[in-house]
Design a protein around this nucleic acid. Structure first.
Lengths: 184, 184
DNA sequence: GACGGTTAGTTGAAATATAAATGAAGTCTG
DNA sequence: CAGACTTCATTTATATTTCAACTAACCGTC
């Protein structure tokens, strides 16, 4: 054994095939979805941000939680949030309790934008990703990805911590008409 | 029906769960693999490029084919190739037949770099992606992603058009010791 | 063989992303 | 409560990516 810890455990043929299919497929998905959202002048990562906000109880989320949710660095989110703010889609509000914290709030204009874009986007996701794959296989894909999620980001099960509590909290809210957000 | 083409077909709960798991998981994977490759000072996308080259018959590929293979824009590949060239890992050679064309060739230093990084990277892929997922489920994930690949990039089945012919072409080559490249 | 249309690859400027340093406000310990 | 340490978010400086020209070479047709 000359190298540190000897020969690595290379991939089997099956593993390699699957892994390469994943790598290439994931890039193609990103490309396709991004392209379709360009028609509305947003990137997928920006859409993710505002759509997450749109689903949150008071259409707001702390920078940190949001960053974790969409898997972006704090710094990146700061920059992107500023861009979204310039467009008038979000506003920053400082947290009442923790004065270090900042909450990103979706404006009415932002809400409307999400609603519009969601139509395009859901069609795009269907066409590129969901429709071509048989339902059971797609479900398996979801399970596999959730295992990976659990491995790489343990302790963030729901994905969106807020959504679980949404119904009760919002029921008597002015925005109750939102009901289960269909921004998917 | 007030909106163009009426209500979009929103996602079912199963579909939504799977799609979100995918989205989040894919970002986490990218993040994890990228982080691990940072130790060698490369990004995942750069690694993909040189590893593809390392598997090609004469360690060379045309810019366009390579761009398609790794799903990057021509422009992006041009810039990235320049960076890799500065490091001495690749060299540009103009095509003999098609004088518009440029081939990107992996240098010996580049080859060595890939060999070294592959050890780190394969371990990283195993740890983050393959090991946590039961083999059959991972295989399903691969199948699903291949369907998507077929949808979004029809007519690029093998992924690496060159690899299929590699064995025979290379068998009596100076680099025959490469055998089935284990850069995975 | 010259015109129009297309493809290959590059370039340079603008947009976006990453990385390291900063400041301000929390928490924990003694 | 002081000091050390951590977390939150931003800032600044770089690095990378995108986007819109642009040049050169191929291709078909007349």
């Amino acid at each position: 054994m000359s190298t540190p810890s000897g020969e690595p455990q290379w991939l089997s043929d099956d593993e390699q095939r699957a892994w390469r299919a994943y790598l290439r497929g994931s890039r193609l998905i990103e490309e396709a979805l991004d392209r379709d959202l360009q028609s509305h002048g947003v990137q997928l990562t920006e859409y993710e941000i505002i759509s997450m906000l749109s689903e949150s109880p008071r259409r707001r989320l702390r920078m940190s939680s949001l960053a974790d949710l969409v898997v972006q660095s704090r710094s990146r989110l700061t920059h992107t949030a500023s861009r979204l703010e310039k467009r008038g889609w979000v506003v920053r509000e400082s947290c009442l309790d923790d004065k270090r914290g900042v909450e990103l709030v979706l404006t009415d204009a932002g809400w409307q934008a999400v609603q519009d874009m969601a139509r395009v986007h859901v069609a795009s996701v269907r066409r590129s990703v969901i429709d071509p794959v048989p339902a059971p296989l797609f479900k398996a894909l979801g399970e596999a990805m959730d295992v990976i999620r659990a491995t790489l980001a343990p302790g963030q099960e729901g994905g969106h911590p807020a959504v679980a509590r949404e119904a009760q909290e919002l029921e008597s809210d002015a925005q109750a008409d939102v009901r289960r957000s269909r921004v998917f």
